[in-house]
Design a protein around this nucleic acid. Sequence first.
DNA 1: CTCTAAATGCAATACTGCTGCAAAAATAGG
DNA 2: CCTATTTTTGCAGCAGTATTGCATTTAGAG
Lengths: 139, 139
Amino acid sequence: MEQHVIDTLKEHKLRTTSCRENTLGIFLSRDMALSHGDLEATLGDRFDRVTIYRTLRTFLDKGIIHKVLDDEGVRYALCRDSCSEHNHHHDHVHFKCNECGQTNCLENLHVPAVQLPKGYQAREVNLLIQGLCASCSDN
Amino acid sequence: MEQHVIDTLKEHKLRTTSCRENTLGIFLSRDMALSHGDLEATLGDRFDRVTIYRTLRTFLDKGIIHKVLDDEGVRYALCRDSCSEHNHHHDHVHFKCNECGQTNCLENLHVPAVQLPKGYQAREVNLLIQGLCASCSDN
DNA sequence: CTCTAAATGCAATACTGCTGCAAAAATAGG
DNA sequence: CCTATTTTTGCAGCAGTATTGCATTTAGAG
Ligand SMILES: [Mn+2]
Ligand SMILES: [Mn+2]
Ligand SMILES: [Zn+2]
Ligand SMILES: [Zn+2]
């Protein structure tokens, strides 16, 4: 496996196991939000379903990936920002293309601030925009 | 059952059945986003789980309710705007309180427009803000 | 009231996600 | 490199979520 993957795991004080290396490698190469099912399909039967679930939870805890809300189930995407164990910050927009089905982080597109009613306190925001991506748009 | 419920069902050309009356009545009285499990718990064992699923899908199709994205599963809330069978428009904010667990539509809070990258076309937006609601905030 | 189309209940199935436990693997320390 | 300790994994099992097919029941049209 690639050195970058191993370094990332070590940086987060995680043991470098085959499932973690492969899973992180897939996130890096695919560059889109992935569901547990996507990973299972890509990894084949090399690892148990439960191990993949636990890998995802571990990555979530460590700030390696973040949840992406989706209308048909949760997905996960790499944290590009400097997220750490107790300091997640994901105020960027997610876009899901209804044509090709891909869900992507629009990292440099911040979720606009919203003026909440009196007394409401915002802690976390999740904005999912659905429509057509650039590739599917000009066909 | 209340006349308003029956009228609403008739307006959408739906037969007024007990499950639909009760389900719609719950949505009207609770005034918050509800999951299938919430409805099942409230309705007791008067109706089969499958019937509740089908009622939800029917209401979705007819524009009586809309999906509310949530980090722990889909919920549903009444459409206040004038949604119809093929003309949904939900650009309002949803708020989930991490204290009391309630998810609500903030109907008069529009999701701000976002300048998408070139070629991207928006069809639908879903903004979920999580934090503390007004009731839970001042304790 | 009767007939027909729609809706329901039930059984079966698939998918998602979690836990406990024994076996296997990773690493720290010598 | 070897061993001891801790972590991770696979497996079995379980709970929750969501869907379908089919026979029965029901709502509403006439
Ligand atoms: Mn993201
Ligand atoms: Mn809403
Ligand atoms: Zn696309
Ligand atoms: Zn609250």
